[in-house]
Computed example of a mutant assay.
Amino acid sequence: MQQQWQHFLSEQGAIINDGCVKRFNSPETEIKNSTAATILADLSHYRLFRVSGADANSFLQGQLSNDINHVTENQAQMSAYCSPKGRALALFRVFHFDNAYFLSLPDEIAETTMKRLNMFIMRSDVTMDDVTNDYFHFGIAGKDAAAKLKAALNLAELPDETDASIIANGLCLQKLAGTPDRFELIGSSDGATTMWNALQPSCVPVGESAWSLQRINAGIPEILTNSVETFVPQMLNLQLINTINFQKGCYPGQEIVARTKYLGKLKKRLYLAEVPTANPIEIGTDIYQSGDNLQSVGKIVLASANSSETTRVLVVLQIAAAEKQSLFLAEKDGPTLKILAMPYDLDE
């Protein structure tokens, strides 16, 4: 995070740690605001990489799980980067802006992920630049988010379908999955304070946890340090949220991903659940089921408190265990998981 931008946010009341806005208000207030208000979040805990060059399209097409040919100024997408064994190394948000492709991913895995991706450029005409400090990156969510964005940006129309994107007034605006509406806004860092000041009067600023809660409620997973190379894409429901294209050509892990779809039977998948604790839950924490055979039946993928007494989680579980329930966090006698309905259909 740029020092000038960090200073500005601190003056607005932000509590910042390691370049990430943790919160603006008490944890209890942030949780309430995340569900009751239109929220505005600084997304500096994500890094932005610009991918350009004559071979940028073919390079990304050969590395990622989705079809890069569908990415235009009017269409963004999510895409997975996998190991040769078909395990997800990272999930990118991919979009086209300023005459180049952009990749967005969490800061905590960005350095190792992009170093690995760079290894495969070789003689291709591709340049990948970390442009995080050249752009602001905001998240806006809430039932009135669309109306407030229209007013602040002076736009007649906004993208109205998941992953739809528009370029206007030097800004890139994308609609994300989930209800209430969620958007990401990217623009030149020179205009960061002006844009924040334009949005802030009609929005409530929040930190990373409140924004993550919106993602969890939308059923959209994320790969973080403790979950790198842990799950095949289908375990994360990526085939259900337009993150895998089964008609495109080869990419690392493609054979495993395709075999899982056409020849295998999925034994694990992603679920939304609630745990009766507001204590922090680490990514990768094991889930157990009641019974004599104490073995892990799943792992936490994302977690964020949604009240002073409960935490919402995305968790990969054995399907058979999820159907039987009686699930516990971290140990046999730990807090009980209550499985909730996903906001999208789990039938393929």
Rank of each mutant, 00 (worst) to 15 (best):
I223H: 05
Q214T: 13
E208Y: 10
F231K: 06
P233H: 06
I241T: 15
V228S: 02
I244Q: 09
N226F: 01
V228R: 14
G219R: 11
N237H: 12
W211D: 01
F231L: 03
A210H: 07
I216R: 10
G207P: 05
V206H: 06
M235C: 12
W211H: 04
L224W: 02
L240H: 08
V232Y: 02
M235H: 13
A218S: 14
A210T: 10
Q214G: 15
E222P: 00
A210D: 05
I244C: 07
L238T: 05
L213N: 02
E229K: 13
A218V: 10
I223N: 04
S227Y: 09
Q239A: 14
R215I: 06
L224M: 03
L236F: 09
T230Y: 03
T243R: 01
Q214P: 00
I220Q: 12
R215A: 12
N245Q: 04
Q214C: 15
Q234N: 08
I216K: 09
I220V: 15
N217C: 03
T225D: 10
V232M: 11
Q239V: 04
E229A: 15
P221D: 10
N226Q: 14
N245R: 06
W211Y: 11
I220H: 08
V232E: 02
I241F: 07
R215S: 14
I223P: 07
L240V: 03
N245M: 01
R215M: 01
A210E: 02
I223F: 06
V206E: 03
T243F: 00
T230I: 09
L213T: 02
G207M: 07
S227E: 04
